[in-house]
Structures are given as structure tokens and as C-alpha cells.
Amino acid sequence: MPDPRESVHKRRPTMVRVPNLTRADALSAARNPLAFIAARWTPTPRTVQRAALAALVMSVVIVVTGGAVRLTGSGLGCPTWPKCTDDSLTTTGAMGVHGVIEFGNRMLTYVLCAAVGWAIIAARSEKPYRRSLTRLGWAQFWIVMSNAILGGIVVLVGLNPYTVAAHFLLSSGLIAVATVMWQRTREGDGQPRPLVGQPVRQMVWFLVAAAVLLIAVGTVVTGSGPHAGDSSEVERMPLDWETVSKLHAVLAWIVVTLTFALWFVLKAVDAPQGPLHRTRDLFLVLLSQGVIGYVQYFTNLPEFLVGLHMLGSGLVWIAVLRVLLAMRERPDAEVELPDQAYAATSPSIAGPR
């Protein structure tokens, strides 16, 4: 017959000892929390890639939700900044659905900050340490902070179209940095080696320049178009909207033509599959964006299609940057170690002493 005390002992849960933080640990965490976390956690490469991808996704989401604020006429749903009203930090019932939409978009900025923060922590904790990744993460953080302030200025000046355009262009800059960081998490830190000749790389830079001009003119279309962002009288850019829209369409066709020509050139020079696949992806995204653009133009700019077109703008920009980054490769290389004590205690990078 089994001993009852033995069965009770078997059912007793195993206690996990939680390490006690010493006073020195607490001071170290307060002085440099990133180094403190990095000393105790090493993320897998997949974790770092997912963190960078999360920051990229949120940078696109914040653009789309910002467009929803404008398209629903909620741009002044919170008429002041940083508070929602002079007397309330948050939206009130009297402000209705427009206040909820505008305040909700402001709250998404905190989600974006969390995603960028997660990317910074993951990059800082990766072993071996890659300073370039951490810098890209911090670059995103400062762009987010700058754009938050600019967004407040947009509200304070009553949705001035030039500040709205600057707000969108800075968001495009955030998407660019996030795309580069995502790509860098999947390659080494060695010197970049070109996969195609210089004439092809110059052609790609022409493509990038045309895409930048396309996005910039798109903000002018927005600034002179009918969707002002609020139901009240809002200043518009003193330009003929249809003329600017036609210029935007011409630039779009230039980008499409350059992409199509690039694909044929890459095939002719027997380029690797990476550049070919990225160029093909860009061409498909451009075709989808073009269809949406023409349909919205001939259907008097329905809000849903305009919002979808804004999403497409972000995806086109990401696809263009991926084509540029696919024209070279970065092998693994020896990287420098940070000047923290934990670097010498990590078995994967410490080496013999």
C-alpha cells in the first residue's frame, strides 16, 4: 500500500525561485534599463525580426487611421492639443463620434510607441550586439515624437493643408526607416555587396526619386481636394484639384513604366532572383494602386476608396524601398561589443580570457 505522505509530496507543486534583485541591480536598471534587460535576455533572430515587423505594420496603421480621421471629418474632433478640450484630457460625450475617432487615433500613437520600443529592446538585447539596428530603432522613436508634436500643431492651426502634408511626409519617413530596420534584421553587418551593375542601380535610384515625387504630389492632391478633414470651413491649397490629380497620375505612370523597364533589364542581365521578385511585387502593388486611384477619381472620391488608396500609398513606398534594398546583400561580419559588463559574461560572444 503506497504511503499517503508520498502521494501528497508528488502533488505538491514545484516552487520556482525568483532571483532577488540587489540594490546594485536596481541602480543598474535605473541608470540603463536597456543594458539591464540585455544582460538577462537574448532574443532569437526571429523575435527581433518580428519586433521590427510589428513597428513597420504600426507605422502603416497609424497612417491609415490618420486618413480615417480626415475622411470622416473628425480632424478637429479634439479641437486642441495636447488635451482633447481645454478642460478634458479625453473626449467627452458632447463631442460625439468625431471626438471618439480623433482621440482614438491619438491613443494609437501610444501603441505605435510600444511597438517601436519593443523593436528597440529586442535589437539592443540581440547577441552579438548590432549598433546599426539599435540606431534605426531610436530613429523611429524620434520620428514618432516629432510627428506627434507636428500632429498637435496641425490641430492648433486648424488643419492647415501644408502642415497636414508635412505630417504625412514625416509618416512616410517613419515607414522608410522601419522598412530598412526590418530588412537589416534579416541580413548581416558586413559591407554591402552590389548584386547588379552600376547602371541598373542608378535606374533604381531614379525609380525611388520618382516614387518620392509621386508621394509628395499626392499630398498636394489631398491638400487641394474635397476631403478637408473637418465639416467646418478649412483652408485648402489654392490649386486646381483636377490638374494636380492629372499630374499625380502622370507620375504614377512614370513609376509603373520604370518598374516594368527595370524588370526587363534585370532579366536581361541575369540578375539574382531577389531583385527580380521584389520588382515583380512592386509592379503588382502599383497595378492595384492604379486601379483604386482611377476608380476613386471617376466615382467622386468615396471615403472608403480614398482610405484604401492611402493604404496602397504606404505599401507602394515599402515595395519601392524593398526593390532598392534588394540590389545588394550584406554578409555576416564581426561587430563591435557595447561597453557594458554583461558583454564579457555572455558565452556566445565573450571568447577566451
Rank of each mutant, 00 (worst) to 15 (best):
P43N: 08
R353W: 09
V335M: 02
A268N: 06
E235N: 09
W253R: 02
V285P: 01
H9D: 12
S59A: 15
E336G: 08
V63N: 01
P2T: 12
L239Q: 05
I101E: 03
P275A: 03
R70C: 04
G314A: 01
P79Q: 01
V212I: 15
V320E: 02
Q289N: 12
D86G: 13
L27F: 11
Y162R: 06
W138G: 04
H277C: 00
T179I: 06
L169T: 03
A209Q: 10
V208H: 02
G158N: 07
F298C: 04
L325Q: 01
V157S: 13
D270S: 09
G151Y: 03
F168M: 08
T109G: 09
P128C: 03
I153D: 05
H227Y: 13
F206R: 12
P199T: 09
V157H: 13
M327P: 00
A139M: 12
V48E: 04
A122F: 05
Q289G: 10
D270V: 01
H227L: 14
W41M: 07
C84I: 08
V320L: 06
T163Q: 11
S7D: 14
D189E: 15
P2I: 14
R353Q: 10
L53A: 04
V320Q: 02
R322A: 10
L195R: 09
A166P: 04
R5S: 15
R135S: 11
L27E: 15
L308C: 12
A24G: 08
G190Y: 04
L239D: 02
V316Y: 00
M327R: 00
S172I: 03
W253M: 12
T257H: 07
V164C: 04
R278H: 06
A216Y: 02
A333T: 05
L27C: 09
Y342G: 06
P82V: 15
S171C: 05
V295Y: 02
V8C: 11
K246M: 14
T179M: 09
S7R: 15
V320N: 01
N147G: 02
P331T: 12
R40E: 10
V265G: 00
G225Y: 02
V196E: 00
G197T: 14
G152D: 06
F103E: 02
N32C: 07
A261I: 14
I215N: 03
P33S: 05
A178D: 05
I120G: 00
G229M: 07
W182A: 07
V285H: 03
N20W: 10
L76M: 10
I153W: 11
D25V: 06
V217E: 02
M310I: 11
W142D: 10
V208E: 00
A341C: 05
K10D: 14
G225L: 05
A216G: 14
V320Y: 02
L286T: 00
Y110G: 13
N300H: 15
M203G: 10
R278Y: 02
